[in-house]
Design a protein around this nucleic acid. Structure first.
Ligand SMILES: [Mn+2]
Ligand SMILES: [Mn+2]
Ligand SMILES: [Zn+2]
Ligand SMILES: [Zn+2]
Lengths: 186, 186
DNA sequence: GACTAATTGATAATAAATCTCAAATGCTCT
DNA sequence: AGAGCATTTGAGATTTATTATCAATTAGTC
């Protein structure tokens, strides 16, 4: 535990102090939570707040938001947009531990995957434009098998996919989708 | 104009009607705006609202939000998270017009780029897990040359990058960053 | 141990997006 | 062309994630 992560309480303190900032029990506890988070897990500010409260180490929601944002800017945490209306955080692990996310847009199940070539291509693209690469996040939006079994998401065309060529989209669209009707708006 | 996009007012009407929904002047105007949007541009709900207002064809903000969301679910628009706190929209163009975004996290300048291999790898990853691919979005977060000239973003370590190996991050971090201090919090 | 600036916690304030509902309107079927 | 009716709109209220404010506390320095 915590052995894979480069940050310890004392290295965090060093990093903070070097910038004129301070180590606090709150920041240490938050770091600890993320370091011991099971691989593949992500936390929102609210979830982190609840988790610490249940653990008997409550931290105010303001401080949670502030800390998590600060640690993201420091490069300790990574801020993720996992399509839900709120941000999620995880320990930031640069290359070669960098990874991306496959997300079910129906139930939000998330699966991580590694792919160095994406990072390589992001770097290439950044350099081509004279940008300095900070991070790159590929979010693959999809429907998981369980959600599929419940039926294709109402409101989505039955053949929706970014791989579908534009011309294809014009045929085979009329049948088999008259029972979907209103459901989306209710 | 509008020739590259598969949707016309009448094909949108057909698509809507086939689902028991209706074509309205509002929806037509919104479609029209996106179809004539310069390549590489993106609009937020608010921006679209202002644009139509200035054009003398005002549509209520509620309707803007509703329409843009509906059209995204129909596959007509693509909903983007461009690291700003609100969503942006563009005409959705499946393969082979599918593209990704390089974004300056300092000034939000956005540059589009094509890369079929990313789509291919997203598809592979989806299939491997039994997911049905809907869309994939690579967001490359970086600092643009202009922003770099204004100085490395305060609060960010001077060597922040997802390409930086973890071990490297431990050296060369002490000097040259004592003048950054408070600025972030003010 | 005292000094001082950074941090916390409680609360108020923002801002994006959604919800509510009466009035208006598009579509279908004569 | 017109009636009927479910859908849509617009105005405003509401929700929810996040940030701002500020007095009280606390960490780091000397
Ligand atoms: Mn992850
Ligand atoms: Mn784009
Ligand atoms: Zn799912
Ligand atoms: Zn910039």
């Amino acid at each position: 535990m915590a052995s894979l992560s480069p940050y310890t309480a004392s290295s965090l303190k060093a990093e903070l102090n070097s910038r004129g900032w301070r180590m606090t029990p709150q920041r240490e506890k938050i770091l600890h939570v993320f370091q011991n988070l099971p691989k593949g897990d992500h936390l929102s500010a609210e979830e982190l707040h609840n988790l610490l409260e249940k653990r008997g180490e409550p931290i105010s929601l303001s401080t949670i938001y502030r800390s998590v944002k600060l640690m993201a800017r420091m490069g300790i945490l990574r801020e993720l947009e996992l399509a839900e209306g709120h941000k999620h955080y995880e320990v930031n692990q640069p290359y070669p531990h960098h990874h991306h996310h496959l997300v079910c847009i129906q139930c939000n199940k998330t699966i991580e995957f590694n792919n160095d070539s994406i990072l390589k291509q992001s770097l290439k693209q950044s350099e081509k434009e004279g940008f300095q690469l900070i991070d790159c996040q590929l979010t693959v939006m999809a429907i998981c098998p369980e959600a599929l079994r419940m039926g294709w998401p109402s409101g989505l065309p039955s053949n929706w996919s970014c791989t579908r060529s534009i011309s294809e989209s014009k045929k085979a669209d009329s049948a088999a989708e008259s029972e979907q009707k209103k459901e989306t708006e209710t």
